[in-house]
Amino acid sequence: MDEIEFRKRVDSDPDNIDQELLNAAASNPELQAIIDRSRHLNSKLHSLAQATTAPESLKARLLEIPEQEDGQARPPRRAVFFQYYAAAACLLLAVAVGLLMSGEQGPTAGEIAFGEQVIEHLYHEAAELDAINAGNLQRSFGMPAINQVMANSGSRFGSGEIFSTMPVRYANPCLVANPYNSSHLIVQTEQGAINILTIDNSPVSQEFSIGDERFSGIIIPMNGGNLIIVGEKNQNLDGYRNSFENQLEWII
């Protein structure tokens, strides 16, 4: 065995050096020095790796998971998708009736289709919404994590003030509608969970309402992209709109 092969076998796993290598090193000080140096580095690596410890609060949160999951009334997946298709038909009807009543020029077919995709996306996250509404999802994202997620859609919240009374229980970068990068926050309000989505583009150029038998919300075109606020049908979102619209900043 040449020295390169010896080094390779030692350095690939210094904690488990096989007997053949140890025997070779026993009669060769240079090879023994290779082993010693490798073990020396490894002990420093282990020391560095073990230097951090997880907070106790994390363990407590992990141990709560079974209880949260068991207490969650989760519809079977098949039922969720059935709900969606039924909901999509209702959405089209609601938009059409709304336009007829208002007499205004309404959203284009593409914009309506986009609204449907937003609603579909919400059903994918229904488990989280249900868990938050049931009080079973209590985690709270801090501003650094929130803005990491918001960066996916080229946006950020300049101040965390808004979230002091409305904790963010869910934050995820996502693709609501390919190819638009989106960020999805679910905040807990006095009225229950509300979805805040931002899109790094403007698939919708005029404001219009979306909704179905469960959800109700609005798509708001802004200078940097689209802001979408959607809650359960019985929620009044008027009070939240200004807060989110005013504090949202577009960074690209």
Partner: peptide
């Protein structure tokens, strides 16, 4: 094993 060897070589 090759990547582990190279990682440690680079670190050293």
């Amino acid at each position: 094993m090759t990547r582990l060897f190279r990682a440690r070589s680079k670190l050293k």
